[in-house]
């Protein structure tokens, strides 16, 4: 174990460099640069809240904030897992030539998405101030569901990266899956909206993101503290995903080089 930690210590600078490279390249040659991480969620929020407050009327107070918070959680998951998924393949030239602990590539992709979610959180807080919504002290606890979300996504990312090395077509399938997931997560509608349909209600509740998102909204937007059981549930799902991800990745990582 100590050997693993020592190895990680040695390559920690690389993790930082990989993340800064991702961020640098993404915004190089754009005039507004890093500001886009803030603008992006805001613009999406404008579009979505405009569309949905005219097309379908959900009875939700401060709908733009509702959407923004939903997007923040969903986008983090979809962005981090789909970029983690191609982490090993995209770094194939490197993996073939030098020894680097391979999980580092997956971690760096997740970490780049963490940078983005931090910007989205600032955008959310900015909007809350702008709309003169009451800020609750529980907003600081919002970090807890986000933390679970990051752990959960890391686990899923590790599994996806492993599978993708062997089967490339998973990438296309996953794209479709993510689209479905947008609607299976209460991003644009409140869960109460589904009460008429038992099946939809169950499916959406089985989705681990739902619980994390609901906790986040409760803490940040509504100032209520979720039940201990939802904390435990999120904790257990996140940890389970991480452990499975690590085991799968660890078992297969020596074979990566033969398939990339």
């Amino acid at each position: 174990m100590s050997q693993y930690i020592k190895n990680f210590q040695k390559f920690r600078p690389l993790l930082a460099e990989l993340v800064s490279r991702d961020v640098k390249i993404k915004y190089r040659k754009s005039v507004l640069g890093v500001l886009w991480t803030l603008l992006n969620p805001l613009l999406m929020m404008v579009v979505l809240s405009f569309v949905f407050s005219h097309l379908m009327r959900f009875n939700v107070k401060n709908y733009p904030l509702f959407i923004l918070s939903g997007q923040l959680v969903y986008n983090f998951f979809s962005e981090s897992t789909s970029s983690a998924m191609s982490a090993i393949l995209n770094n194939a030239p490197l993996i073939k030539k030098v020894y680097i602990p391979k999980y580092l590539f997956v971690l760096s992709r997740i970490a780049s998405s963490v940078v983005n979610i931090m910007a989205s959180v600032s955008a959310l807080i900015f909007m809350m101030l702008f709309m003169k919504v009451e800020l609750h002290y529980t907003i600081f606890l919002g970090i807890i569901p986000i933390f679970f979300l990051i752990i959960f996504s890391t686990g899923v990312g590790l599994i996806l990266a492993t599978v993708t090395v062997k089967f490339r077509d998973i990438m296309h399938l996953y794209g479709v899956f993510l689209t479905a997931l947008t609607y299976l997560t209460p991003v644009i509608y409140p869960i109460s909206f589904l009460q008429s349909s038992r099946i939809a209600y169950t499916v959406v509740n089985v989705n681990p993101l739902t619980n994390m998102l609901t906790m986040f909204r409760d803490l940040v937007l509504y100032g209520t503290i979720p039940s201990i059981s939802s904390f435990m549930l999120s904790f257990v799902t996140a940890m389970a995903a991480l452990v499975i991800g690590l085991v799968v990745f660890y078992k297969k990582q020596d074979k990566f080089i033969l398939n990339i």
């Binding site: 040695k10 600078p13 690389l14 460099e17 990989l18």
Partner: peptide, 12 residues
């Protein structure tokens, strides 16, 4: 230079 150094395990 910094990226490659990090690959070789050197800090910034």
């Amino acid at each position: 230079i910094y990226l490659n150094g990090a690959i070789l395990g050197y800090s910034r």
